[in-house]
Every structure is written in C-alpha cells, then in structure tokens.
Amino acid sequence: MDGTLQRLGGPLGLACAAAPTIAFVIIEAVAGLTPALIGLTVTAMTACAIRLARRESPGAAVAGLVVAAVCAGVAAVTGEARDFFLPAMVVPVLFVLAYSGSLLARRPLMGLIVNPLSGGPRRWHTHRGLRRLYTASTLVGLGLAGLTLSARILLYLADQPAALAVVQVVSTTSFAVHFALTLVLARRSAGAPVQAITAT
C-alpha cells in the first residue's frame, strides 16, 4: 500500500498538491483576495519546483501549476474567493458521468484505469475476481464523487471558501487512497486462480 501511494507522490506529493489551496484560503481570510492570489502563486510555484526536484512526472507537476493558475484567474476576474473553487467542481461532475457510463457499459472505470498498471490480463472483464473488484471500486468512486460534488455545491452557495478548501484536500486524498487500495487488491486478485465468466 505504501509503495503504491508513493507512485502518486507519497505524503509529500499530496501535501504539495494541497498547499496552494490551503495558502490561498488562509491568506484570503487574514489579508484579502489580492494577497491571497500572490501567496497562491508563490506556493504553487514552490510546490511545482519541489515535485520536479523529487523527479515526479513533469506533466503532473506542471498540470498542478496550470490548475492553480486557472482557479486564481477565475477568482481574480470575479473578485470572490469562493470562485477559486469553481473550476474544480468540474472534476467530480466528470467522474460521476464517467463512473456511471462505465457501469452501464459493463466496463467499470476503475478497471480501465487500474488494470494496465496492475499487470492484470487484457481481458480482465472475463476474470470473475477482477470484474467484481473493479465494479465495487467503481461504485465506491461514484459514491465519493457524488458526495464531493454535493458538498461543493452546498458550500459554494453558502459562501464557505475555508470549508471548500477542506473538501478539496480531503477529496484529493481520498481519491489517492482509493486508487492505491484498488491497485493493491487488483494485483492480488490477478494472481489468484482465474474463474472465467461468460457475461461480457
């Protein structure tokens, strides 16, 4: 489990991902929007540099910087701190749609994402153990995404940027743990005796 989490950056990687959001909310509460945007920029650039220094994926490191810039841009244009979290609301919406669509198509999304990394068989959907695991994991992911989306909408309407920050950090961490746990279980299941299923 620890090794799998390290693939996602480990505790330091998760902290780097959360740092810009936390810095923005704290500074905005103390000093206002403009200083918060400056603090966000500095923190995001520092986090990107740390991730690159740790030889993490350059694409992931730069993507974090771009996401922070987009969120900051929205808040700067509207002049409201809560709008910093508007772009991030798209993520759980996309996940809800993707999870739901994959279940309807009988190709659970977590199987499509995790199986290539776990070394499982190409026809994982005919492997009874893996099919059950990925279906259950996809249902859990759907539940997490739905809860996250509901919480974000309610807190946005209530104008609670600090609470939105907490939800964003918790949802990022829960996704990482969910992914890591699914990967560990998939590796174990892929090594178990195969019980083929006829439904495809």
Rank of each mutant, 00 (worst) to 15 (best):
R123S: 10
W124T: 11
H125Y: 14
T126Y: 11
T126W: 09
T126F: 09
T126P: 06
T126A: 11
T126N: 12
T126E: 14
T126K: 10
H127S: 06
H127R: 08
R128D: 13
R128H: 12
G129F: 08
G129A: 11
L130I: 06
L130V: 07
R131Q: 13
R131F: 15
R132Q: 14
L133R: 05
L133I: 12
L133W: 04
Y134N: 14
Y134D: 09
T135K: 11
A136L: 15
S137E: 09
S137K: 01
L139V: 10
L139H: 08
V140M: 15
V140R: 15
G141Q: 09
L142N: 04
L142D: 01
L142S: 03
G143Q: 08
G143F: 00
G143C: 08
L144W: 00
L144R: 01
L144Q: 00
L144E: 00
L144N: 01
A145W: 01
A145Q: 03
A145M: 06
G146N: 03
G146F: 03
G146V: 04
L147V: 11
L147Y: 04
L147G: 12
T148C: 12
L149D: 03
L149H: 02
L149A: 04
L149T: 03
S150M: 14
S150H: 13
S150A: 15
A151Y: 00
A151C: 01
A151E: 00
R152G: 04
R152S: 05
R152I: 06
R152P: 02
I153G: 09
L154C: 05
L154D: 10
L154N: 07
L155A: 04
L155E: 02
Y156W: 10
Y156H: 05
L157P: 03
L157A: 07
L157S: 06
L157T: 04
A158G: 11
A158W: 13
D159T: 08
D159N: 13
D159L: 10
Q160H: 10
Q160R: 12
Q160G: 06
Q160C: 08
Q160V: 06
P161D: 02
P161R: 04
A162K: 01
A162V: 03
A163H: 08
A163L: 13
L164K: 07
A165Y: 00
A165W: 00
A165P: 00
A165I: 00
A165F: 02
V166M: 06
V167C: 06
V169C: 04
V169N: 00
V170G: 01
S171I: 09
S171D: 12
S171R: 07
T172G: 15
T172Q: 14
T173Y: 09
T173C: 11
T173G: 10
T173F: 13
S174V: 01
S174N: 05
S174M: 04
F175Y: 15
F175P: 05
F175K: 11
F175A: 14
